[in-house]
Design a protein around this nucleic acid. Structure first.
Length: 923
DNA sequence: GCAAGGTC
């Protein structure tokens, strides 16, 4: 045993871990634990004695709160107009402790000075390792000769913590390097693209985001792919072309009940084939049972709960946003009711006292009895939880940690989320539900049909997990060889539907799959899209892009870049892995990645017209002077007047271009530029003659009609005094713009879009009715509806009003929405006059009005923007005819004859299934 | 006024 105790500073990633680790270690030390405040009110300091490998230690344990440092550009580059955004790929960056973390730094410095060892108890992932090096930097700054160790633990349980303390290792710089690289890349890409697209677009268009605020059009390597998922699905829906299909359905009712048989062919898109088969069946409708199968089926409980699954399920079951879920979960965690809510782990470690967690819940009035049954060996309800295959080695799956029947300070959402966590946990340790399934196969005229029935034998976990359901429907008894006449045999039509908009749960799945964000940040990226007005979420938690979101993605897509796809992030992730494994160095990755991204950035800037074009499809041009055509704020030269600041390229509010001192108004040194310039961009070329240097040359573009013919419109010039061309043009053209609108762009050539509804953005370059340019909806010659219809009754979607004049009697037709299986959601008009049965589908009106259906909606590659973006409205009108007789129904869904005529009587006005000559089939 | 990642 050693004599003198070593003083050890221990640092955890968060206060809760410091407390847990201190509690566990101090129990073995025997001397108890003292707690005192640190400089930061959240991060307390715990002191106790502990033996590390026979070495007596006086342990001082405190914490940080996540990252201690931030990365940002040097002061000189922080202001938006301080430099060309392209310069942000090389601009110096520095890591520093931000203002709100200074008190934590002070605690660390003060404690480190008194200690000999530093032991880092940060989470065992790359970010944790990076935070470890931030702590090291601060601590060794205060005391340089610290002996530094890392504790590796995967859960806050006794055995793990002691093992970690007894097997200290050295921190892994490679892991920290990987994060450093990620941070730097994110910062440079994010800031450069954000400044670029904001400065390019925000003043060039009228972008009304609904409230007074400074518009920022941010770009980020996580937020854009997330937006990309939303836009991609939206485009998929727009591009969907509904296709009609036919299916034969059969049902049979006996004393025991009704069995519904589905056609084993599924459905056919070819009407002629479908009707032939259907006719065969109706000619010989006797069904023969050819197979009856009985089998046992299990429905398994979910895996243990991790963060993403919690967010998805809270969204699905309660329609809670992922952001709100995390806020509520955090509060439940802080109050001790649930375990740490940010975890990837969906597998309980074998040491977990699962029965103990169940035991905590037996008193609950609602699920307590179930918990009791779980603990009763005779009930045979217990089952060890499944392994979801994820383990972050830092936290267990989310589970209840304290019993509650609801607290007075809880909102409904706290109660709901707690209930979800408890029920989910109880479900995880339960047996699966068991069902007896029956499949009956029948043959009608050689066609096979099948009916399925299910009887639930044991509900098991479903008794507690009320969010899952497993429908059961009993089938009447059938025996092989049995014959019967179907009660109904129908030919039904259906139409293929586009996929739905992405729900929040879908979006989380997409992000998870593509590795966009982490479990702790995914909800932030989703919220950012809503905050930036790139997307909206409807009441069903489904996401649509806004005009702004769609325009931005379209702009980059038209450039041919996949900046809005997840690949960039995936590549970066792969590079990060390479750095952490040592196969690539941090500087290699930074150099290559930033070089590529800078090239991409410069290319995007060259192709900025694509972004402007895409925006122009959705927004009106503004007349505000803009910096979009000028890399405003870019430094041109040091100021020779004040000798303190640089001079930068600027545009005054009235549109004049100049190079002025950045210390204005303290220094008023200025060089005015000719008014005939349309574009100006500071280059990296340095003038070889002018002093004091460096004087960066400017690439000018002049307006052809405003300069003499013998001058070139493109000119690489210098404002240092050596450039005679520039001087001559300034003298000839004067300074300041010829037109007060600044750049003069968007002033002709293109049709200015008009707005239909005040307060919304216009995307109507074309008539919403016929998709032809040159006139408005109201003036459309092919409009079928009343031209006096007030504007407010039609929307941007080019839809009709909720009333139409009847084509038959002239009375009012009212719009309704079909709710039948085949046409659910499809709108139609029905005449309100008692004796008039007039009825018409809305999409068939649109077909008639356009002559050939709605313009093809845009998918990737098909870029014709049409005002009506609906994928619907193509194809023939569909109706239904039916023939009822004595409880037996044969129905065809084909309203209009497509081709041919009745197979029985030859009459072209109907098909064989409704033919009056048809032999009746009695049940 | 910019990113994404920790965390209170």
């Amino acid at each position: 045993m050693s004599g003198r105790a070593i003083r050890v500073l221990n640092v955890a990633e968060k206060p809760s871990v410091a407390k847990s680790v201190a509690e566990i270690l101090s129990r073995r030390g025997g001397g108890g634990m003292r707690v005192r405040d640190g400089r930061s009110r959240y991060n307390r300091v715990f002191e106790f004695e502990y033996m590390i490998r026979n070495q007596r230690c006086f342990m001082v344990m405190t914490s940080v709160t996540g990252h201690l440092m931030e990365l940002d550009f040097d002061e000189r580059y922080k202001k938006w107009h301080s430099c060309d955004p392209a310069a942000l790929y090389q601009a110096p960056v520095r890591k520093f402790v931000p203002q709100d973390k200074l008190d934590i730094r002070r605690t660390l410095e003060e404690e480190a000075r008194k200690c000999e060892w530093l032991v880092l108890w940060l989470d065992c992932d790359r970010e944790g390792e990076n935070i470890a090096y931030e702590v090291i930097e601060v601590c060794t700054g205060a005391k340089s000769n610290l002996n530094i160790y890392r504790a590796h633990f995967s859960a806050l349980i006794e055995r793990e913590i002691h093992e970690a303390a007894q097997n200290l290792v050295r921190p892994n710089k490679l892991f920290a390097d990987a994060v450093d690289a990620r941070q730097e890349i994110d910062l440079r890409i994010g800031a450069s693209f954000t400044r670029f697209q904001t400065m390019l677009l925000k003043d060039a268009f009228i972008i009304d985001l609904g409230e007074e605020r400074n518009i920022v059009l941010s770009y980020g390597p996580c937020q854009f792919p997330t937006l990309g998922f939303i836009v991609e699905r939206y485009w998929e829906i727009q591009a969907h072309e509904p296709e009609e299909f036919w299916t034969v359905n059969c049902s049979h009712t006996s004393e025991e009940g009704t069995a519904s048989f589905t056609w084993l062919r599924g459905h056919l898109f070819d009407y002629a084939s479908a009707i032939v088969i259907y006719e065969m069946c109706t000619e010989e409708p006797t069904a023969t049972v050819i197979n009856v199968k009985n089998h046992e089926k299990f429905k398994y409980p979910p895996h243990p709960l991790n963060t993403i699954e919690l967010q998805k399920r809270a969204s699905r079951y309660y329609r809670m946003s992922s952001e709100h879920t995390m806020k509520v979960a955090e509060e439940l965690y802080q109050a001790g009711f649930i375990s740490y809510p940010r975890t990837e782990t969906d597998n309980f470690s074998p040491n977990t006292d699962l029965a103990g967690i169940v035991r905590d819940q037996v008193e609950h009035p609602v699920w307590g009895p179930y918990a009791q049954r779980l603990l009763d060996p005779d009930a045979r309800l217990w089952r060890n939880p499944s392994n979801g295959g994820h383990d972050d080695k830092a936290h267990p799956p989310i589970h209840p940690t304290k019993f509650s029947t609801g607290q007075s300070n809880w909102t409904q959402d706290h109660a709901k989320l707690y209930e979800l966590v408890v029920r989910h946990f109880l479900a995880c340790v339960s047996q699966p539900a068991v069902g007896a399934e029956t499949t009956v196969e029948i043959d009608i005229a050689g066609e096979l049909f099948q009916a399925n029935g299910r009887a639930i034998i044991a509900k098991n976990y479903l008794d507690v997990y009320r969010f899952d359901s497993w429908g059961g429907s009993l089938l009447p008894t059938y025996t092989v060889g049995q014959q019967f006449i179907p009660t109904s045999l129908t030919l039904d039509s259906g139409v293929t539907r586009p996929p739905p908009l992405l729900s929040e749960a879908d979006l989380l799945s997409c992000m998870d799959k593509a590795g966009i964000g982490t479990d702790a940040t995914m909800h932030d990226h989703i919220k950012k899209l809503l905050d930036r007005c790139y997307a909206t979420k409807d009441a069903n938690t489904r996401f649509s892009p806004t005009n702004l979101g769609e325009a931005l993605v379209m702009g980059y897509d038209d450039m041919g870049y996949e900046l809005w796809k997840p690949y960039l992030r995936s590549m970066m992730e792969a590079d990060m892995r390479a750095v952490s494994m040592g196969t690539k160095t941090k500087s290699q990755v930074l150099e290559i990645c930033l070089q590529q991204m800078k090239a991409c950035f410069l290319d995007a800037r060259t192709n900025k017209a694509k972004l402007l074009d895409a925006m122009q499809l959705f927004f009106q041009r503004s007349n505000r002077p803009q910096g979009g055509d000028v890399n405003q704020g870019a430094v041109v030269r040091p100021c020779g007047a004040c000798c303190e600041s640089d001079m930068a390229l600027k545009r005054t509010p009235n549109g004049s271009l100049m190079v002025g001192c950045m210390s204005y108004p303290l220094c008023r040194n200025v060089v005015w530029l000719p008014g005939s310039i349309s574009e100006a961009s500071v280059t990296n070329n340095i003038c070889p003659t002018c002093t004091p240097g460096p004087v960066f040359m400017i690439q000018f573009k002049f307006r052809r009609l405003e300069i003499p013919p013998n001058y070139d419109v493109d000119h690489l010039g210098c404002i240092g005094g050596c450039d005679t061309i520039l001087r001559e043009l300034t003298e000839m053209c004067g300074r300041g713009p010829k037109n007060s609108a600044g750049t003069g762009r968007g002033q002709g050539g293109r049709e200015t879009p008009r707005s239909t509804t005040s307060g919304t953005h216009s995307r109507l370059l074309f008539c919403t009715n016929c998709n032809q340019p040159g006139h408005s909806f109201d003036d459309c010659p092919s409009r079928f509806v009343n031209p006096r219809m007030p504007q407010s009754t039609h929307s941007n979607n080019g839809r009709y009003s909720d009333q139409l004049p009847c084509r038959q009697c002239g009375g009012p037709c009212v719009q309704r929405t079909a709710n039948t299986e085949n046409n659910r959601g499809r709108k139609f008009y029905k005449c309100q006059s008692e004796n008039c049965g007039f009825f018409i589908w809305e999409d068939s009106i649109l077909d008639n009005a356009t002559g050939q259906g709605v313009g093809r909606a845009r998918g990737r590659g098909a870029r014709t923007v049409t005002a009506s973006r609906s994928g619907r409205g193509r194809g023939r009108a569909r109706g239904q005819r039916s023939a009822n007789s004595d409880g037996v129904t044969f129905v065809t869904a084909t309203g209009e004859p497509v081709s041919g005529r009745c197979f029985i009587c030859g009459d072209p006005s109907h098909f064989a299934n409704t033919c009056p000559e048809r032999v009746r089939v009695d049940a």
